[in-house]
Design a protein around this nucleic acid. Structure first.
Length: 431
DNA sequence: AATCCACAGGAAGCCCGGGAAC
DNA sequence: GTTCCCGGGCTTCCTGTGGATT
């Protein structure tokens, strides 16, 4: 019995018409050989770097743009291209054991070029940053313990030991500012004045357009010598990008009509996020493959769109703090048992009851009001400020997601499940 | 015109946990 | 280890709001 069904399964797998040839090319970590609609940005980025190689003092570059506009891809692309051209090393994947470059090219008689890619979300303090840079330059520094200035000295000496140009790419540089002081940026940005042989250039990548406003003016001027802004892709440009990736990722003739356009349209609605578009295409393909379809069709894309949106909601609901869950559950119960519109005061009184029943602390109305605003921001609630004249000013609250989905997810939490019998008292409608 | 409801939402400060610095 | 500092969650106190009501 078992044997046979397994055999059938194998047969199915082998005979199944495959759609995806190479899934990696649909992942956002993948850097393609061609970056459509980014010629201008590539040029702007490459120009200052090339002039540095000719001996001019390097200028630092700041790159802005929303998620999925190709910032990281373009920077890496230019870096790799330059290293290939003039020789040097390109580091982007720090392995724990031993750091080795993604690739290196023997340099000719030029100044050797080092690209070091660091994601500031992971490397988020001055010490870690310096330690990481030391590692890349071949010096070993313990993860903790040494004074920061000693690590800085080691880094400085390793850097200045020979003639070279080091380009440090700081991705998500805005995270650095939030988590630690901006000292590291200050030190790095003025290091060139002390260097005898080597030169250092910083490329900062930021999602936050206001990032620079919060900087110390001295850092601001040196870091933002060149600024490149990446505009979001429009739907037409997204189509080009998807077409190019689809060609590498899929077998021929498996993409149905309108599929690419639909993926692009969905993603364009969300500020032209190419990453989102690629995710949609990949998930559509997976859905199509799973149901043994020969082609990816528009309905697969629609299904993928719903699926990703649902996954997001489920994840958000699951990870909500208990207090927010109780607030949200209060709204759910009011929606279920109450016919009139729901306002903050109603929610708060139900919330207090639920807290008492479940033994949770009761927060102030002020705080609950903030929690409601947060839920609004997440799109789970819709809260609109309304004026009811004599009867005050408040928020009119509605659910932003089907009630049953919220109820089901919340009740998976036993703290909510055990108070789910509660029925809010009937409201006396005024007017 | 003045009043007043039922909150919104800003400001300041407390408490606490965790990580950096010493 | 201890101390220091920071940020997040939270409270307290407060001022502001716009139209129905007086």
């Amino acid at each position: 019995m078992k044997q046979r069904s397994l055999e059938e399964l194998f047969d199915q797998c082998i005979n199944r018409r495959m759609i995806i040839k190479n899934k990696d090319t649909l992942r956002h970590s993948y850097t393609p050989d061609v970056l459509p609609h980014r010629d201008k940005e590539i040029e702007k980025l490459a120009f200052p770097l090339i002039s540095t190689l000719k001996g001019e003092t390097p200028s630092n570059i700041l790159v802005y743009g929303k998620t999925g506009t190709g910032k990281t891809a373009v920077v890496k692309y230019v870096g790799k291209a330059l290293v290939k051209k003039v020789g040097g090393k390109f580091y982007s994947r720090p392995s724990i054991k031993r750091i080795k470059p993604d690739f290196e090219v023997e340099n000719h008689d030029n100044t050797p070029l080092y690209f070091i890619y660091i994601n500031c979300e992971v490397v988020d303090t001055q010490y870690r940053m310096l330690a990481k840079l030391c590692e890349y330059l071949g010096e070993s520094v313990p993860l903790t313990g040494w004074p920061t200035d000693k690590v800085y000295d080691i880094f400085f000496n390793a850097l200045d030991s020979s003639k070279k140009l080091v380009v440090v790419i700081l991705d998500e540089i805005d995270k650095l500012l939030k988590k630690s002081s901006e000292d590291i940026l200050y030190n790095l940005s003025r290091i060139n004045t002390d260097l005898k042989n080597a030169k250092l250039s910083i490329i900062g990548i930021s999602n936050d357009l206001n990032f620079i406003e919060f900087l110390d003016p001295r850092i601001k001027s040196s870091l933002g010598e060149e600024e490149i802004i990446f505009p979001p892709y429009d739907a037409v440009q997204l189509v080009d990008i998807l077409n190019q990736r689809a060609e590498e990722a899929f077998y021929p003739d498996v993409v149905g009509p309108g599929v690419i356009q639909l993926c692009a349209a969905f993603a364009a609605q969300e500020h032209g996020d190419a990453r989102r578009a690629l995710d949609l295409l990949r998930i559509s393909a997976e859905i199509a493959e799973r149901e043994n379809s020969k082609k990816i069709e528009e309905r697969h894309v629609k299904e993928a769109q719903i699926k990703t949106e649902n996954d997001r909601i489920v994840e958000v609901l699951r990870t909500l703090p208990t207090q927010s869950k109780i607030v949200l559950y209060s709204v759910v119960l009011l929606e279920k048992y109450n016919t009139s519109t729901i306002i903050t005061g109603d929610v708060y009184s139900v919330y207090k009851d639920l807290c008492r029943l479940s033994g949770q602390d009761i927060l102030t109305q002020r705080r609950v009001s903030d929690l409601i605003s947060e839920l609004d921001l997440l799109g789970i609630l819709n809260a609109k400020i309304i004026n009811k004249g004599r009867y005050g000013r408040t928020k009119e609250i509605r659910l932003g997601v089907p009630i049953n989905q919220i109820k089901r997810e919340l009740e998976k939490d036993y703290k909510i499940e055990r108070i789910s019998y509660y029925v809010p008292p009937v409201q006396h409608k005024l007017g």
